[in-house]
């Protein structure tokens, strides 16, 4: 447990040291919302209708941005090899990394989402449903992202191929995420989203650990 806590602390410190990263991510998220408004036009009825989908697309893209720093720095300086030798199982170390990835690249987006809701003319009730769906759904995105990053970590310039791998896997998250905001059966969608998140978060560290230990052989 202390090892896990130390791992969490290390990851958090590393992620927050370059504080600019989190700010960049949030800016990207907000700017995506503004670009949607510019592209679609200032029709607030139309914007309000597509807002839930656009928020999820923006969150998905923003979470892809931070993916490359999940394992690559540790792969390049050899820390991943050390983690494999450590007493803490590699899957636990990766679980810690996924948690921190969520904390630094999903939580700031959720905190910044009121600004996006304002830009896209979202009403109050929809806004709270969006916050709930982002809270429940983004862990699954982080988990799938970890699998994609682990699979591509030993490829030079693999940062480009990871999004291609992750996008098809993330489709159910987007479907249920948007569904839990807009659909008539929104509570069912939210439950599906929760199930998906739980499954992804519990299985992804093992898959990622397997990929990484195969890559470092």
């Amino acid at each position: 447990m202390t090892a896990l806590r130390a791992m969490l602390g290390r990851e958090l410190r590393l992620a927050l040291r370059g504080g600019g990263d989190v700010l960049t991510l949030v800016l990207f998220f907000i700017i995506t919302g503004a670009i949607v408004a510019f592209a679609v036009g200032p029709d607030s009825v139309l914007l309000a209708r597509i807002a839930p989908g656009m928020v999820w697309v923006a969150a998905f893209l923003a979470m892809l941005l931070g993916l490359d720093r999940l394992f690559r720095p540790d792969h390049e300086d050899g820390a991943l090899i050390l983690l494999r030798q450590a007493e803490l199982p590699l899957s636990a170390a990766i679980a810690a990394k996924v948690m921190v990835h969520w904390l630094v690249s999903a939580l700031p987006l959720i905190l910044a989402s009121p600004l996006l809701a304002l830009q896209l003319a979202m009403d109050g009730e929809t806004f709270w449903r969006m916050v709930a769906s982002l809270l429940v759904g983004t862990p699954a995105l982080a988990a799938f992202g970890a699998v994609g990053a682990a699979v591509t970590v030993s490829i030079r310039g693999g940062g480009l191929i990871a999004p291609i791998l992750i996008a098809p896997l993330s489709i159910p998250v987007l479907i249920f995420g948007v569904g839990s905001i807009t659909a008539s059966q929104s509570s069912a969608a939210l439950l599906f989203l929760a199930a998906l998140s739980l499954m992804a978060v519990s299985l992804a560290p093992f898959a990622a650990a397997l990929a990484i230990s195969s890559a470092e052989d």
Binding site: V147, V151, S154, L165, P168, L169, A207, L210, A211, S214, A215, D217
Partner: peptide, 11 residues
Amino acid sequence: ARIIAVFTLVG
């Protein structure tokens, strides 16, 4: 092969 096998199973 081993890495892609992991991804294939995840898929």
